[in-house]
Design a protein around this nucleic acid. Structure first.
Lengths: 149, 149
DNA sequence: CCTTGACCTTCCCATCATGGGAAGCTCCAC
DNA sequence: GTGGAGCTTCCCATGATGGGAAGGTCAAGG
């Protein structure tokens, strides 16, 4: 099987298959005399595993961990569950963050006339005219900062 | 005001302030004799606007649009609302996608013993042993593909 | 005066996962 | 043998941000 067929069979683009090989996520494939990579059913299975993990939002690093666990017949399912649970937590954090944005935005959009007049509570909020809800944190190290305003 | 003070006052890192200038999001600042950038209250206000927009998840491109609308006193609030509404839609799409992942993952994690035995439904799912839910789409163009399996 | 160190400058590189595209092969069918 | 689809490698781009080096500047304190 050439890379294109492996791609079709797995749903992973040829570009990504080569990339996964490059970063060591999958083993370098054997080559035919013409220097084409050769794939078998097992490789396709692995690629589908990766694809599925990516579809569930796992990073390539997490995917690698899962892949190794999958191939380790003496794994403990607790290890797998831990990766999954951490990922769930991560997703939920991001979801909550985005939901906060949506909530604020919906409120602002609701208050905005959306007509041909310039007056707009959305811009007012962004400009800080109302009480802005957001971390009022300065980002940089800010260790000593000269205070010579 | 130097860049560090503007950073502290706005919550935008100095690095990002320079970057925003580079990509044209903010106008190049005047320099003092020592080649330091100089900021005033107005610039800090703009930076806070940007910061707030970023906190609400707007891309820099959207932020630029909003910034221009903010500075355009003859804008129509409909234009602002449109940007916000589109962004809300985008966020909701992403939230839904992630919620789908969470739902699947929680189910799988729930079914996983999480003990010292190797047997694991999470890996089984990733390996495609069950009916996998995910787009069964091949990614690449796949226009002609030789089919000589 | 000189040192120290906090600040500024520019420039390059890294992230994360993916795609685009060029240049140059091979292979197959016609 | 020709055309075109497929393969190879290599470089570049994305979006937004951070890290860090190399070097200039400024202010305070010895």
């Amino acid at each position: 099987m050439n890379i294109g067929e492996a791609s079709n069979a797995s749903g992973v683009s040829a570009k990504m298959i080569r990339y996964y090989e490059e970063i060591g996520l999958i083993r370098p494939m054997g080559r035919t005399g013409n220097n084409y990579r050769v794939y078998g059913e097992e490789e396709v299975h692995i690629l589908r595993f990766i694809k599925r993990a990516r579809n569930l939002g796992f990073s390539l690093e997490e995917t690698e961990t899962l892949l190794k666990l999958w191939q380790d017949k003496s794994r403990e399912s607790a290890a797998v569950k831990e990766v999954a649970t951490a990922h769930i937590g991560d997703l939920e954090r991001r979801i909550a963050e985005m939901q906060g944005m949506v909530k604020t935005l919906k409120h602002l959009a609701h208050c905005c006339g959306g007509d041909n007049r310039p007056n707009c509570p959305i811009l007012d909020d962004l400009a800080g005219d109302g009480a802005a809800a957001g971390d009022p944190q300065a980002p940089a190290a800010r260790k000593k900062m000269k205070q010579n305003a």
